[in-house]
């Protein structure tokens, strides 16, 4: 029996890890969408976290928890650098800038022989396991849920509903927007570190545009009313293609279709309810 269970876990280990990692990525997208901005750089932030942490553990034998901190800090710093000028402009600029950053990073990895160049990084220790991934996910989910129900959460909602009005009401727009982007990049970076430390190999072409759009489809499918929506979206879209094998080939078609249909017909996503309505005092 334990042998069968062992085989089952061995067979589905990657899928189980992917469920947790993708949920984290969906949460990172949620933070930006929750203030009415769109970042197409979540995959790039993830890649940066993956590379930063993998270089530390594989080349310098730095302990994994320390590498994890770097995986959060490096993308956060980059997000600060991109966000500071672009978030003052309309949302379109952030979206385009984050696409640009993804491409610049890709070219950077390709030309950086120390990090393996096009061959990618090999031999990353498999440090991240079930406890790490789902522990961090639980903490992040609880944290975001607490924030969503707090003053900060209400301010974020106000910005999403009407930026100008929120500004007039005294919400400090630049600080909120920049903070959201920085936090989102840090979360994506941690997800990237987990991704690198469960598969032992990362390559420069894995964090491109398709990955960014897939992360967006997680968040949109679940809905951004609460942090639980994006996680649900990530779980559904990660597990479904594994269960229904034929869906695998049409993964990108389905992700694209979901984004189109949700934006036009179902702006709330699968879980449209806001957290404050659930059990909050009236």
């Amino acid at each position: 029996m334990t042998h069968a269970l062992d085989n089952f876990l061995f067979t589905y280990q990657s899928l189980i890890y992917a469920l947790g990692i993708n949920s984290l990525l969906a949460l990172s997208m949620y933070v930006v969408l929750a203030i009415g901005q769109l970042s197409l750089g979540q995959a790039a932030f993830m890649g940066l976290g993956a590379y930063a942490s993998a270089l530390l553990t594989a080349k310098f034998a730095i302990p994994f928890p320390l590498a994890l901190i770097a995986a959060a800090a490096v993308p956060a710093l980059l997000a600060f650098v991109i966000g500071a000028p672009t978030l003052r402009l309309s949302g379109v600029y952030l979206a385009i800038a984050t696409i640009g950053v993804g491409e610049v990073l890709r070219i950077f990895y390709l030309n950086w022989d120390y990090a393996g160049g096009a061959l990618g990084l090999n031999g990353i220790p498999e440090e991240a396991g079930f406890v790490w991934i789902f522990g961090v996910l639980a903490v992040a989910l609880a944290g975001f849920a607490a924030i969503a129900r707090s003053r900060i959460g209400r301010a974020m909602e106000a910005i999403r509903a009407d930026e100008a009005a929120a500004g007039v009401m005294g919400v400090n727009l630049p600080v909120y927007k920049l903070a959201a982007l920085v936090v989102s990049a840090a979360v994506a970076g941690v997800a990237g570190a987990f991704n690198a430390h469960v598969s032992s190999f990362i390559g420069p072409n894995e964090y491109g545009f398709d990955a960014a759009v897939t992360i967006l489809s997680f968040a949109l499918l679940g809905g951004i009313g609460s942090p639980f929506g994006p996680v649900l979206g990530a779980l559904v879209l990660t597990a479904l293609p594994e269960v229904l094998r034929p869906l695998h080939d049409y993964r990108l078609v389905i992700n694209g279709l979901i984004i189109v249909c949700v934006v036009i017909f179902l702006p709330g996503g699968l879980l449209p309810w806001r957290l404050s309505r659930i059990g909050a005092p009236r």
Binding site: R106, L110, N111, G117, A118, L119, G120, G203, P204, N205
Partner: peptide, 10 residues
């Protein structure tokens, strides 16, 4: 050589 895929670089 193509510097963005592992096959060509190797």
């Amino acid at each position: 050589y193509a510097n963005d895929d592992a096959f060509s670089k190797s």
